[in-house]
């Protein structure tokens, strides 16, 4: 599927473990990963994780548990202190909580810039950007500037921009946290559809239990200080879930119970 030359490995100065991955299956492999800032406390401790290609993984945890740090390490924005992260398809696309569109460019040009940095020839960019915007139902807003768009529309432009990077892995750091409930609900549906349509591997960081239960095929719960993966759930039937579905509520309750347990341990 991918040539070995495109494989990028983010390693700590001293790599201790040999990569032992089932080839072709794992999109992201994380081995005994640890992270600390300077001489501070351990932020992430001994994270071992293998994420299948095409999987929708939600990374769930309380504020400050290091889930964003983990995402940044996968994205290559930060370096791990120990261990290694392998993204089989090379680099990953990233979407943040803040849409972070370039305010001096229109929605269409924002997407075009991503295409340009990817090396798409100038002639094809405008049409490609328009198709990507249409994928998130925003073809009509291509000429609008970011400040003229609502928060939800900006996030959709940001989604179109990350899709423009054409990378097999999409990392999302609480992308819908700042949106109102109605918009967020719609964007869940949008993202799910885009995921099915494009076959991306998605790692979605959130502190919203219901959101994780609504979106994830696989949910990873992280503890805080140091961040470890303490439990995980796999959802087999992801067909017709809605935020108000009873199975989402049931799973949410179960996860919330564990999450609270984890948080309580920090009280002492």
């Amino acid at each position: 599927m991918t040539s070995p030359a495109r494989t990028s490995v983010v390693t700590a100065p001293v790599q201790t473990t040999e990569p032992a991955v089932a080839p072709g299956l794992a999109a992201i492999t994380i081995e005994s990963l640890g992270k600390r800032y300077g001489t501070g406390p351990l932020v992430l401790d001994d994270i071992n994780l293998s994420i299948e290609a095409g999987q929708f993984v939600c990374l769930l945890g309380a504020s400050g548990c290091g889930k964003s740090t983990l995402l940044n390490i996968i994205a290559g924005l930060e370096k791990p202190t120990e261990g290694a992260v392998t993204v089989a398809s090379g680099k990953a696309a990233v979407m943040f909580q803040d849409a972070a569109l370039f305010p001096w460019l229109t929605a269409g040009r924002n997407v075009e810039l991503a295409l340009k940095l990817r090396g798409v020839p100038r002639k094809q960019r405008a049409a490609a950007a328009l198709e990507l915007l249409d994928l998130v139902n925003l073809a009509d807003a291509a000429d609008k500037r970011p400040h003229e768009l609502s928060g939800g529309m900006r996030q959709r432009v940001a989604l179109a921009r990350s899709l423009a990077q054409d990378r097999k892995v999409l990392l999302m750091d609480e992308p819908f946290a700042a949106l109102d409930a109605i918009t967020r609900d719609l964007l869940h549906e949008e993202l799910e559809r885009v995921w099915r349509q494009t076959g991306r591997t998605i790692v979605f960081v959130t502190h919203n239990v219901r959101e994780a239960a609504r979106l994830g095929e696989r949910i990873l719960l992280m503890s805080s200080r140091p961040g470890r993966i303490v439990n995980e759930w796999t959802i087999t039937d992801t067909g017709s879930r809605r935020i108000e579905s009873p199975e989402v509520a049931r799973l949410g309750d179960e996860i919330t119970g564990q999450l609270r347990e984890e948080i309580r341990r920090n009280a002492a």
């Binding site: 798409v120 020839p121 094809q124 049409a127 490609a128 198709e131 990507l132 994928l135 139902n137 899709l163 423009a164 054409d166 719609l186 549906e189 949008e190 559809r193 349509q197 494009t198």
Partner: peptide, 24 residues
Amino acid sequence: PLDARIDTVRAAPHTSDPGHDEFR
């Protein structure tokens, strides 16, 4: 008209699906 590398749009568009039209 597009470069085949842009595989985000290779999936069939959504015109036929009434549920999707409603969503849009």
